[in-house]
Design a protein around this nucleic acid. Structure first.
Lengths: 196, 196
DNA sequence: TCGAGCATGTCAGTTACTGACATCGACCAT
DNA sequence: ATGGTCGATGTCAGTAACTGACATGCTCGA
């Protein structure tokens, strides 16, 4: 139906062919403008020039649109851990995974900060973020087990590394003078080691 | 209206006066019988002899009915940390909080196991559990800060302690021969210390 | 040119919640 | 006792997040 085509043309200044990408971009816009709860799935779909049904075919639920890259990041971490030097301790191997995963965000600090603000403003988004972090813990633990690390060491190291990642990310996006995410990870990891 | 009274009398063998407690008990029953998604809020309300609206006045959402005690546990941990001996390290103080919080579960291992099975079977319940654990991390970190511990040490120790708690709980409910939860916590904490 | 396959549109339905208002019993002051 | 407030509940109507079933149109290889 050409009506939707017209909607599309009116909606964006320049045409962006990938519907999925459009929905993600538009969702971030709307969430930032009026908040997550105040934005309906229909709103996002409309501004992206698709149907609400199409939105839900691409994203399992409304929150998911904010977490599109998270699987990739977990897989990246996983693979990096598998490829890390044998002599690394479990914690160091896991941290290497975090650095690798984090490198995917390297050139998108402003986007990450934006997203992080939206998520912080809504408990149900925070909930989803925790689930994604838990998936990252699982992927990390599995990679460690593949390196021959037994439980509960694998889980503990995975949890520790992801915690470091999480805290480092928070400091990274909030930092006044931008430093590398990897630097924040190293720094936070050092504090962790001093705990025991 | 006496119809609901009749429903109530038919629903339970013996009369249990506390509506909230009834809803919780009934919800666990139904979730175990037919699963979380297959149970509507109306089902729970009906079997508990109340209205769906009443259910939602007691619980912010359907999942919340499974997490009633979690605030109490976080507060207990918080208070225990504040009251712990000054000479304890941040991690040890946080772990003392976990033991205190865990003591609330001491005599309900079977209930905890039941609940844990239900939660494990449903991603959205797992999500809510993660949120509750995050609240426990927050409470723990706050208590540590009140003891004069600075960031990010406070957060790191809090995360570490709650991770230990989480893993220890899992092993506790799954253990063949029942040991103390506190024992599991101590044991898991020892593994954590060996990481660094 | 046909047909398979895939992304999308359309439409109707279920269920999780929410707001507004009425009711009812307990308890308290007069 | 009488009236009044308060807290918990019932009733009802509404919104929005999803879901299933089916139709349509576009692309691409045989």
């Amino acid at each position: 139906m050409s009506a939707t085509v017209i909607t599309r043309i009116l909606a964006m200044g320049r045409w962006e062919p990938d519907a999925r990408g459009r929905m993600i971009r538009v969702a971030v816009e709307l969430f930032a403008e009026r908040g997550f709860e105040q934005t309906t799935a229909g709103d996002i779909a409309e501004r992206a020039g698709v149907t609400e049904r199409t939105f839900f075919r691409h994203f399992a639920d409304k929150r998911e649109v904010l977490f599109d890259g998270s699987n990739t990041m977990a897989r990246t971490a996983h693979d990096a851990i598998l490829g890390a030097p044998d002599e690394l301790s479990p914690l160091d191997a896991a941290l290497a995974g975090m650095v690798a995963g984090g490198s995917l965000l390297a050139d998108r600090r402003d986007h990450a900060a934006r997203r992080s603000q939206i998520i912080a403003a809504n408990p149900s988004l925070r909930e989803r973020e925790l689930l994604k972090l838990a998936a990252m813990v699982d992927a990390t633990a599995e990679a460690l087990r593949a390196r021959g690390i037994a439980e509960p060491t694998a889980s503990l190291a995975a949890h520790s590394a992801v915690t470091v990642f999480q805290i480092a990310c928070g400091r990274w996006v909030r930092a006044d003078e931008p430093a590398d995410l990897a630097a924040h990870i190293a720094q936070t990891a050092a504090v962790l080691r001093a705990l025991a």
